[in-house]
Simulated scan of single mutants.
Amino acid sequence: MKLLFSESRPDHGHYVYPFAIWAFPEEGETPADLLAAGFLPSGHKLDRYYLCRHTRVVLKQFAATSENRRVLRKWPGVQCEAVSREDFALSEERLAFCLSYTRSRFSGGGMSEARLRSLFASPVTTHVLIFRRESDGRELGYVTCYREAGRALFYYYAFYSIEHVGQSLGAFMMTTAAQWCAREGIEYLYLGTCYSESALYKTQFAGFEFFNGMRWSNSRDELKALLGRGGGDAGDGHLLEDEGFRARHLPEGLGAAAAASRFRG
């Protein structure tokens, strides 16, 4: 991959001069390669990626926890079907369903119809997971996914019935997707970023990991420490200059962390 560094707002007082890191795939690389390196797609075309604190489940380690089973029991008789993008018809009814969800749940007024149509028609959506009630065939939710056979599934946008907000339907859909991926022999399920307490629900799965800028980590304590660096003195300076953080979460030292890094200059 090729990298570009896009300058962000500096903090002269603490000698912090940040750059957003963009990756562009080279010949022979696939999206699964960039996902594994800590990048997520920027947009729908899979031609540019950004480095971030994103999350995944190592599916060979996945097994339903008591919390997962509790969520699954709340929605008996709801089945998940995976269909290819080409076989998913974005009817006016389905379009209205998804738009209604985004207007209810997304900040800033939801997603435009044009953007939604682009999402369902673009390379980032190779498959759609359809959640359907067996008793009457009613569709309760959809998830747009990028799937690379055997290697990765990126769980991108989820849409579900606003009638059931607050009833764990979203958690049910994600848990069911993890089960399905494990059965399909997929190596990793990617779940997007974790930059707030509200995203900690992604840690509920056995096999959970997050990318910390150097490597994939399975330490929930480390993740919570990162979330706690949101302001004040705790958020000043570079993370790796924080001696307390290094002592707790990098006891092997910076030299060992650098030696293990997959990034090279």
Score class of each variant (00 low, 15 high):
3 L>Y: 15
153 L>K: 02
224 K>I: 13
15 Y>F: 14
202 K>T: 02
148 E>F: 01
218 N>D: 15
176 T>S: 11
45 K>C: 11
247 A>C: 09
12 H>T: 08
151 R>H: 03
43 G>H: 10
160 Y>D: 02
67 E>M: 12
201 Y>E: 06
102 T>A: 05
79 Q>D: 13
169 L>V: 03
147 R>E: 09
83 V>Q: 02
150 G>N: 07
172 F>R: 03
17 Y>A: 07
263 F>W: 11
163 E>R: 07
182 A>R: 12
16 V>S: 05
214 M>I: 11
161 S>F: 10
252 E>P: 15
190 Y>L: 10
80 C>Y: 04
199 A>F: 01
233 D>S: 10
137 G>Q: 11
212 N>E: 08
214 M>F: 15
210 F>N: 07
218 N>P: 03
199 A>N: 15
83 V>S: 08
119 L>K: 08
99 L>F: 01
131 F>D: 12
239 L>V: 00
115 R>S: 14
15 Y>I: 14
84 S>W: 01
123 P>D: 14
9 R>C: 12
207 G>C: 06
52 C>N: 03
135 S>C: 14
168 S>A: 03
103 R>F: 14
119 L>Y: 09
79 Q>G: 08
264 R>W: 02
200 L>H: 08
99 L>A: 00
29 E>H: 04
187 E>F: 12
153 L>S: 01
172 F>T: 02
105 R>Y: 11
232 G>N: 00
6 S>I: 15
149 A>F: 11
228 G>K: 10
187 E>M: 11
26 E>P: 10
175 T>Y: 06
251 P>N: 11
231 G>N: 05
40 L>C: 07
77 G>V: 09
161 S>R: 11
149 A>H: 13
134 E>L: 15
160 Y>L: 06
232 G>L: 03
225 A>E: 14
